[in-house]
């Protein structure tokens, strides 16, 4: 009883804090100074990315993205470590997927992968980018796992893709440091006209590697969760 009332009081207290925050907020009519710097015509032309969010994620705050990708990598490693148990030899008996679903998956998987690739190659023009595209590619992989539940998951392939793209990501960052302003600067390739596909310097290339890396990491996580089903 005491516990419940304590929790109630705590939630109410947090609610009061939120209420005071809410009353102090009275809408924005202008951009903040930092955002005004990012949205200036000169800076847009200099970076060459039509999507300002992509510009922030990949170049201005590229180091954060590097850290984030590292965190995802660590998460995937920890999950793989903790979920791994003794695999029972006896094959699990599951109801096989319907034939129609298998055929539909075979048709849809390439299309979904191409859609994911579209999302991250066009990351500097349309909404989306490496993280979203990677998630969509992981969805295609999960569709494959779903249609054949007992199929062993090829961890090695995805780990290889992940390491190669991670290495390329770092290499591009270092290239930026050598030939342009700093680590992960995109301007060592010609930035081109804003709005074209080939523009934004190295942004599409960097985001493609991020997409491949994130896709492989998420696929590894999902594959771990799939594999744990096969234990006893």
């Amino acid at each position: 009883m005491l516990r419940n009332s304590l929790i109630f009081v705590l939630v109410i207290a947090v609610g009061v804090i939120f209420y005071s925050l809410f009353t102090q907020f009275d809408g924005n009519d202008e951009l903040s100074d930092l955002a005004q710097f990012y949205a200036q015509k000169e800076n847009i032309d200099k970076v060459g990315s039509a999507n300002l969010v992509t510009a922030v994620v990949v170049t201005y705050r590229g180091l954060d993205t590097l850290g984030e990708v590292t965190i995802l990598f660590l998460t995937a490693a920890i999950i793989g470590f903790f979920l791994k148990g003794k695999l029972e030899e006896g094959k699990r008996e599951v109801r096989p997927s319907s034939e129609i679903l298998q055929t539909a998956a075979a048709v849809l998987i390439p299309i979904i992968i191409v859609f994911g690739v579209y999302i991250f190659i066009n990351g500097h023009l349309t909404p989306g980018g490496g993280f979203q595209g990677g998630a969509i590619i992981a969805s295609a992989i999960i569709l494959m796992l779903l249609t054949r539940p007992t199929m062993p998951f090829n961890h090695k392939l995805f780990s290889t893709i992940e390491s190669i793209s991670g290495l390329s990501f770092i290499t591009l960052g270092v290239l930026g440091a050598l030939f342009a302003g700093g680590f992960l600067d995109n301007r060592f390739i010609e930035t081109g006209t804003v709005g074209e596909l080939i523009s934004g310097g190295a942004i599409p290339i960097i985001y493609s590697f991020v997409g491949l890396k994130v896709g492989a990491e998420l696929s590894n996580i999902l594959g771990d969760f799939q594999e744990v089903q096969n234990e006893k």
Binding site: S98, I100, L101, A104, V107
Partner: peptide, 17 residues
């Protein structure tokens, strides 16, 4: 048009089983 019939087929099959 392509996915909706498939998903409803899968669901119908599951609910039958």
């Amino acid at each position: 048009l392509f996915t909706n019939p498939v998903s409803s087929h899968v669901l119908a099959r599951a609910s039958h089983y």
